[in-house]
């Protein structure tokens, strides 16, 4: 049974908070730098990092049972399945070079 009285300390919470604020500032700053298509990559990368930090520390997953890892992982895995399989259709529509695959408007 998960008894998480040994969760993170206040010191860790403050460190997590500081890094989240720093990453927020960073993502705004990066947005104004012209990195071409990498603007999106960096912005999403920072968002994923922030989310991971929140999940691990604020939501105690780092200290939780394997089952919690499994549940959180399952949610993210099926989210990726939804993205990947739906995008697969849209990305590959053009591959046969037929008008059917083109979107019109």
């Amino acid at each position: 049974m998960a008894d998480d009285h040994h969760g993170p300390t206040v010191r860790i919470y403050l460190a997590v908070f500081a890094s989240l604020m720093f990453l927020t500032a960073l993502t705004v700053w990066v947005a104004f730098q012209d990195l071409g298509m990498f603007n999106d990559v960096v912005a999403l990368g920072i968002a994923c990092t922030k989310a991971t930090i929140v999940i691990l520390f604020f939501m105690h997953v780092k200290y939780a049972s394997r089952l919690t890892w499994l549940l959180a992982g399952a949610g993210i895995l099926f989210l990726l399945i939804l993205f990947a399989f739906a995008m697969a259709d849209y990305v590959s529509r053009g591959w046969l070079g037929m008008p059917a695959s083109h979107y019109l408007q």
Partner: peptide, 8 residues
């Protein structure tokens, strides 16, 4: 739908 997605 794309033919390739359909195949998968």
């Amino acid at each position: 739908q794309s033919t390739y997605a359909g195949m998968v």
